[in-house]
């Protein structure tokens, strides 16, 4: 598996985690190049379908990052994310996709260092899992 560089998709909410990612940039915190961020307004707007689509078409891992519980810009949006994403991972597990390919975490606008840590750790986990088995059979 040497040289495998996973392709990872990250959904970041506009108010906390996207801002946290910006702060990581401002502070020049270095991290792996594998993660590609999609900005959404709230982590609760991330449909399970997006996660399923990405993984079934060969993306190696999906990150969903939101505000900490209690800090959601939209009051309780992330409460839904907290239920929805782990459930999505469980559903994917039943069809043979390792649930570790889906990760939910909370990064605030002030946590550039945590963003760096989450990215670095997730890339390491997914690299360890190897390529998404569905990569070659995507439709």
């Amino acid at each position: 598996m040497t040289g495998f560089r996973p392709t990872i998709l990250a959904f970041c909410c506009n108010w906390c985690s996207y801002a946290g990612a910006d702060l990581a940039g401002v502070n020049r915190l270095q991290m792996p190049t594998n993660v590609n961020v999609v900005r959404v307004m709230c982590s609760a707007s991330v449909k399970p379908e997006y996660v399923i689509k990405a993984l079934s078409q060969g993306i190696d891992g999906v990150l969903v990052l939101g505000c900490h519980i209690g800090d959601c810009h939209y009051m309780t949006g992330n409460h839904r994310t907290a239920k929805r994403i782990p459930l999505t991972a469980k559903v994917l597990e039943t069809v043979g996709i390792d649930s570790r390919r889906v990760k939910l975490d909370w990064v605030s606008a002030a946590e550039g260092d945590k963003f760096q840590q989450v990215i670095t750790d997730f890339v390491e986990v997914v690299t360890g899992l190897g390529p998404n088995p569905l990569r070659e059979v995507r439709f």
Partner: peptide, 14 residues
């Protein structure tokens, strides 16, 4: 598209 905070600034050596 953010290629500064999310790219050039965090991958300066790559």
């Amino acid at each position: 598209v953010n290629i500064r905070e999310h790219c050039s600034w965090i991958h300066t050596k790559e």
